[in-house]
């Protein structure tokens, strides 16, 4: 009798209590993950719980959804500290490299080592081109040569337009961006799950553009490339 009573009670509460709680739990879990992917602390996903407030809950929930949609996301790197670039050759073009004395990497979970400090004095621009060479994980050789005719080159998988295309599952579309100035090179990670590393140190979207003029090894996902002057 008790079992039947319990079953009837559960059936009676199925649509009014049990399913809404499951729905709320699922959506809150998803909100947590979405927040983390956007670069926010995951607990901000708990805003989803406001939806159960009687009466005005859905209005608050909707307002917070709008706020989330239109505010700056840390993933976009807009909040990363940037210092005005002082080029010895003249004023900064619209998409220039950051200067010497770059800000350190913020403390993060995936920071095995700090990026090496930039050189006190950059070498004079003697070369007019760069070469990225290496191989895919399956052994296929890769070689990209580019000059300074363009200021920005996109690196990515063929799923989206990219200037330097790498066919590998660990490469995002787009994955990273190279910023080119006379004799200088910068790298910006675009936040894909594969990740980007400069000489073994992770480059995060919040780091913005990092100078790689004197760097040797760049890693995009599972693909490691060596940087050299042409």
């Amino acid at each position: 009798m008790e079992a039947v009573g319990l079953g009837a009670l559960l059936a009676g509460k199925l649509f009014t209590v049990i399913l809404p709680i499951i729905f709320l739990g699922l959506t809150t879990w998803m909100s947590w993950r979405i927040m983390v992917k956007a670069g926010f602390p995951g607990y901000l996903g708990l805003f989803n719980i406001t939806g159960i407030i009687p009466g005005v809950g859905w209005i608050i929930w909707t307002i917070l959804l709008w706020v989330f949609a239109f505010i700056q996301w840390p993933r976009d790197g807009a909040s990363a500290p940037r210092v005005a670039y002082q080029s010895p050759a003249g004023p900064l073009p619209p998409q220039g490299l950051p200067p010497q004395g770059l800000p350190p990497l913020p403390p993060g979970p995936a920071t095995p080592q700090a990026l090496p400090p930039p050189p006190a004095q950059l070498p004079p621009p003697t070369a007019i081109g760069w070469v990225l060479s290496g191989a895919l994980p399956n052994g296929t050789p890769l070689r990209f040569a580019f000059d300074e005719s363009r200021q920005v080159l996109t690196i990515g998988a063929p799923a989206a337009p990219a200037d330097l295309t790498i066919i590998d599952g660990s490469i995002g579309a787009p994955h990273a961006r190279l910023h080119i100035l006379p004799g200088r090179l910068g790298l910006e990670d675009l936040g894909t799950s594969g990740g980007t590393w400069i000489d073994g140190a992770p480059l995060l979207p919040v780091n913005g553009i990092r100078e790689i003029t004197n760097s040797r090894e760049l890693r995009f996902g599972a693909v490691t490339l060596t940087l050299a002057r042409a």
Binding site: V36, K37, P74, R75, A110, D189, G191, S193, G194, P205
Partner: peptide, 9 residues
């Protein structure tokens, strides 16, 4: 478009 949760493969 990329996520903020990049992890080494």
């Amino acid at each position: 478009a990329g996520e903020a949760t990049a992890r080494p493969p």
